[in-house]
Write a protein that binds this DNA or RNA. Sequence first.
DNA 1: GCAAGGTC
Length: 852
Amino acid sequence: MKLVVTEKNDAAEKIADLLGASKPTKDKVFSTPVYRFTIDGEEWVTIGLRGHILEPDFTPTLVYKKSKGWQGVTAEGEVVAAQLPSDLEKPPYKTKRKPFLPDGIELKSWKMDALPYLVYAPIEKLPKEKDIIRSLKNLAKKCDSVIIATDFDREGELIGSDALSCIQEVNPTAPVSRARYSAFTKEEITHAFSNLVELDRDLASAGASRQDIDLIWGAVLTRYLTLVKFAGYGNVRSSGRVQTPTLALIVAKERERMAFVPEDYWVIQGSFGSGEGEFTAPHATARFKVQAEAEAVMGRVAKASVASVAAVESKKRTVRPPAPFNTTSLMAAAAAEGISPARTMRIAESLYMDGYISYPRVDNTVYPSSMSLEETVRTIAGNPAYTEYCEALLRKGKLVATRGKQETTDHPPIYPTSKATPDDMPAANYKLYNLIARRFLATLSEAAVIEGTKVSLDVAGESFAARGDVLVKPGFRAIYPYGLKKDEQLPALSVGDTVAFNGATCTKKQTEPPARYSQGRLIQEMEKLGLGTKSTRHAIIERLYNVKYIQNDPIEPSQLGMAVCDALDKYAPHITHPEMTAELEQEMNNIAEGKTTKGDVVLDSRNRLASQLQALLPKAEEVKEALADAVAADAYVGVCPKCGKDLQIRASQKTKSMFIGCSGWPDCDVTYPLPKGKIESVPELCPTCGMPQVKVTAFRSKPRVVCIDPNCATNQEPDVVVGECPTCRAAGKTGKLIAQRNPRTLKRFIRCENYEECETSYPLPQYGNLTATEEVCEHCGAPMVIVTTARGPWKLCPNFDCPGKEKDGQDGKAASGKGRASKKAPAKKAPAKRSASKKAAPKASAESESAE
DNA sequence: GCAAGGTC
């Protein structure tokens, strides 16, 4: 039996399809799909891995103590000793002798002391995909030859080499060869399998050196940053070969903005024409740097009432249709439509798995000649939004597509592979599908032609310039309206005409600092600098958000992000620059060409890290303070009214929920509750009481700024009397039910005014305006209330245990504050509820009638 | 509790 190993299940299936004489049979080995077929009577089987199946990590017995965690290098390994450079003291074999530290440096933490050893700690490959490895070994035992058919690139060679080491554990003798293909076509695949080559060990070890270097630098610097001031589990401060230079880009941009000095300028805008033909035009001097000059112009045109047309200039320009989508350009285009790169890739993966689009991780921007463009157009023409355009395209006959700059042959650019309409998938998925389908059609379309018109107008000797843009031939713009500017039509004018002049306005403006990176722009910048790959860039950015180094979109760094970047840039600048990646690429090429070895390259990198760590360790106190200050600044919301120290946004250790606490804790016990949602500090104090305010963005709602003091008048909702207490009434007493908020937790609820004796209380939705009604619930006798949110008014029975809830679960959930009216129109709820409750009401119904 | 790279 011949065993074929591919990088992913998809590829295993396709190769079996293309190689097998007849349809391959799909089988499973444990839970892994495999594909069986025969060639000339010989049995073949293909199996797809899941990318890397092994993962490097520090040898666990040497680097971790028996208890889990970052204890330190116990250093019993000979490998470590052999690789230590001579100017480093030997690690303390089996003793607790003081480890190496630069002269005169004392550190109290054993964890930090261990870092110099971690730099030289041995690394081994540990299983990552255990189920896949088990299936692979099971097949390997039975096979008599192996073909590695992973992707044709460096990581592919490494993945194949790892798979081979698993195979050879159980079958060391089977001959091995390598199939290299760069497209899933019959010719390419049969050619690759009839011209098998050897696995390129050098290329694989180039990839393995990248893995080791990333791990060593990442682990050492991440531990350093995390341990200088340990802020609790879940508060990792990470660093890495790709993420740190990316963060540095964002920080550098912010610094540029901070150094920017805005300049004042004045803009004069004139108004011309009348009625339908009214238009505005700026003065020919677009920006006046001197106010007096602008005012002089205003003075000269003040009394004018007509303008004469001095010149009319028309120019046509063509806008070429865009290139086919690869991963980067898709992420950039989707980011401009408000879908983050990480989300784009999640959605693209699911569209791909459902068969709507082609493979989403590609660099290629040129459709392969084997691809039938006409067929794809016909496939998606079924969507009514595209039908007319598709038919027009097909009538043109032979289609010619645009070509992008990058051309590879492993996968085609991203294009739609089947028809979809908004009914087939969630709205967000369709938004992305629509972008991809329209982009595909755009790449087959003609250029758009825009006619730009410039009209020079003379007003009392002052020149104004009106500009108009008109799309004269839509071309690809008809199907691909993304980022399209609106037409600015000018009335037809010719030289010598006069038009009415309706006066001018002079506005003071300021020059703007350079813009922050959008997520799409940042992805493009990373690609330009060689940071990350098409499959990892979005994840790197997401990681920077998760560790709270960056925030918002366009992206700005947090104080913490700036502090981390500064500390590393000062003492370990190698990690903050994209050149580390460029140098690594060069070294990897050298390994692949046999000019050097993985061992040498990794040791060089370890030595470099050791020297940077020697610069960092003595500065631990300084870095600790810088990071602590930054974290405090990010959390700062204002001044504590009791002790004058800082009030900070904090997370409860136990519940992880957010609250505001005083930095003077435990001496000062001032705390304020916070509502659910994202919390940001705002500089402005509450206009009513002078306390700090925070910006709250609850899930799916608009941000609102609220005072942190629950007792502030702005947070006071008057207690609302919502009706009579059914329990008290049943007991022959009277009691009013009152809706109020718990001043500590801000939770809103209803309770009986006799709460010392009567336990009746109901939960309420936490948001929205509450008003009482005269009505009483026909099931339980509790008073009905109306909650008005942004979605409209919504009548409900607040009783969580109301028997009427069983029929209509949504009300119950909403009343407990956990859910909100989601899809149904809230206004419809009340009547729906009434009709759903014809059955006999429980005993409280008698009271409910008398209450009316 | 660490990175970045594959892929699900």
